[in-house]
Design a binder for these strands. Structure first.
Lengths: 198, 198, 198, 198
DNA sequence: AATGAATGAGGCTTCATTCAT
DNA sequence: GATGAATGAAGCCTCATTCAT
């Protein structure tokens, strides 16, 4: 049973490597299959085009965020700690591979099934929403915020800021500063009272 | 004076139309030149590929935001009014043309000259920063916020939220709701005290 | 075994026909594949451009000289007879197809691998050198000539003279006269005593 | 009057530089005019195509040989000295610029007017023929040789050997050896008695 | 004579996709 | 399922050439 998706795993893995190396546009199916060590035709047994693997790849990336935060986060630790964990992780992943924003962006854009995307992001949104709800419950943040909306804003903001920093090639010091400011921006958006930037 | 890049203007205009109509990938240089009424070779006098016009197009889009807000905004009207104006405008433009996020995104990503991008976004960031500074000055918002960082967050957040709504095809009512929430999110991030969502 | 490069053979054969018919510059890959009855893309599976087939074609031509002389020549018949056979053959082949000099010339020039060319001409040079050595052995020619150098001169001279005659469009009578003179020139270059031109 | 051909000279000079640098095929008219500092259209005032300048260029090259030998040669010095001068010069020129054979070859091949070529080479052939005639007159060489044919063989042989050495990238020592052997080959072809290779 | 922006035909080449093995 | 040689549609882009100034 696990064997069935063996080739698909190979394709996914290889495609990711090539995308990372060459970029989305300059990646060829021939390169992917070469790296995967499979025949050209085999690729089409699993995907209809190179762009067709993007949704799967993006799903992995988003799922990894959720998984990481679930494993390393602690709802008891407070919103600020969990938020900082999310920021650190998303920045880190984006920093490590500059094509991730494109993969996720193109993945969403091209996916025929938009609902699929809601599903992909849902767990991550829910996780953030849970943080917000917990924070609400223990009075850490305001009662009138709407976790379902705010969680989307939080993720969007972290992702787009991380992407921008990479595009504009900021120094590590600047990146740290951005993380601080971003963290304070978000916390202030939800807090009872202003949070002072350290 | 305008005559100098007469042909370039034509290309830019036509390219935008086709991109809007067909999308980035499905646009052909042949379609652009046909619409522009120029020869195929002429295109390559000004751009190296269809993707090469994206940076110029994106510049126009971002500049238009700045121009619109400068013309219609009123620094005296208060942060909330100006912020709402920015949200409305960016949402409106994105709603009207779903390829705008892709154009801007691909435009930035592909531009060899990253500094150029900072320059393009700078006026818009500065404008938002001015709003924040004015609001700070008249006590509308907290004193400890950093307009230079926050202005970037505000723009990023509005743009990415607008894009997301389009991708996920929300209803007009939902869009309005998102605008409300987004507005409150941002205002809360900068205010002395929580702003109640109406 | 021959099946392996079945398509390659086809391309080679067709390319030669078209080159002969249209000339090097006016040959189109589309014409070659049409004649070969294969798809345009198939051509690029074996060669990178139409000029890329020239080395292979030139190799065939040179090899054919060697093969012809090996089959029809007779080392016992004396240097003059074998020399005359070479002259006749090279002139004949060049006369029959005027693009041969260009194919060979361009083929050598374009071949990235120069050593390959030494290998291609080697058998022909060796054959001529063998004639010279045999002639030396039986006292037909001088003892101090160096077959390895002279064999190259002989081939070069025959080829360039044949080419020149074609370019300058001499009459059949003139061609015969040139052959006589060329033969005497070469024989005199190696003989003990002057050979009288008949 | 000299002014008239000012632009033509520029084109010729620039074309030669680009041909030398890029090779025949990869030379563009645009590159030539750029180097010449003239407008694209001006080129076509003097030549119909880039290949159209080859005959003029080749003429210069061949004329230079004649001129050089006329200036530096001395008919009194004996055939061997003058022959050696010709060999040295032709080898030197070819060594210095590897595209010369191609220019001359393509120049001849493409020239619509073949007779023009005979005219171009004529002075050089005549010069060599004069050497041969003088050598015949003073008994240095045999009486039965035909200077008109032999002079062509001599030039052809030197040119093709020089070209071959360049193509096959021989070492300077090997080149010298070839020159020795070539000289002896030619001299033997015309002498009363064998010439010993030094 | 000189210019050089504009032209546009058409060859080149790619590369996703197929399908017989 | 796997293969990979073959396909061929189709778009890119060049670059010689023109011509109004």
């Amino acid at each position: 049973m696990a064997r069935i998706s063996n080739k698909k795993e190979l394709i996914l893995e290889s495609a990711y490597q090539i995308f990372k190396e060459k970029g989305l546009e300059d990646t060829r199916v021939s390169q992917i299959v070469k790296k995967a060590g499979i025949a050209q035709g085999t690729f089409y047994l699993y995907y209809n085009s190179k762009m067709d693997v993007l949704p799967d790849l993006a799903q992995q990336i988003i799922s990894n965020y959720t998984q990481y935060l679930t494993e390393h986060g602690d709802i008891e630790a407070g919103l600020d700690a969990n938020l900082r964990l999310a920021i650190d992780r998303i920045f880190e992943v984006n920093q490590e591979d500059r094509t991730i924003p494109s993969i996720v962006y193109a993945g969403i854009t091209r996916s025929g099934d938009i609902d699929k995307w809601k599903v992909i992001y849902r767990p991550l949104y829910d996780l953030i929403a849970d943080y917000l709800k917990a924070a609400k419950a223990n009075g850490e943040i305001r009662e009138d915020i709407h976790p379902d909306y705010y969680s989307e804003f939080v993720i969007s903001l972290i992702e787009s800021t991380a992407r921008g920093l990479i595009l504009f090639q900021h120094s590590p010091e600047e990146v740290e500063k951005y993380k601080e400011e971003l963290s304070s921006f978000i916390l202030n958006a939800v807090s009872w009272t202003p949070i002072k930037v350290i």
